[in-house]
Design a protein around this nucleic acid. Sequence first.
DNA 1: GTATAATGCAAAGCGTACTTGACAAATATT
DNA 2: AATATTTGTCAAGTACGCTTTGCATTATAC
Lengths: 67, 67
Amino acid sequence: MKTKIRELRKARKLSQEELAGAVGTTRQTITSIEVGKYTASLPLAYKISHYFGLTIEEVFDFSDLED
Amino acid sequence: MKTKIRELRKARKLSQEELAGAVGTTRQTITSIEVGKYTASLPLAYKISHYFGLTIEEVFDFSDLED
DNA sequence: GTATAATGCAAAGCGTACTTGACAAATATT
DNA sequence: AATATTTGTCAAGTACGCTTTGCATTATAC
């Protein structure tokens, strides 16, 4: 799953640890999602998106889903 | 996590099994999400929402999340 | 009233999201 | 160059999303 997290985070000059703290998760979780190691859960996707003032659909790319 | 899935599904007169088939999952998964047994994954939340022509935020209620 | 469809629920099992701790490599700062 | 900050990754463990099977209950239809 591709996301715009890294570009949004860097635009605001935040470290992974700062973003993690802001959304209540760990640095490793942010790294894993940014690198594509796994897909965020729905609650975490919401927290990250709204932290940036965007909707989930604006931050996460679903074009790889069939249907 | 509250959702509008049941009301959207009934408005279209679909059974849980029909919705499940349409979004590529099982009837029990739809039941569990409707009843609040657990929260949908991000990909499934996307598939369900867009099956109804809505965004994730329009179908799922995130007001129970802290922050 | 009997059959059929639709739903709720439970148990066992699998894969994955997430945490914690720790280490190495890369980037920035001085 | 040396130091500090940031990031990638690995391993072990916990929790949860999801599947499959199966049974019981409620509603719809014949």
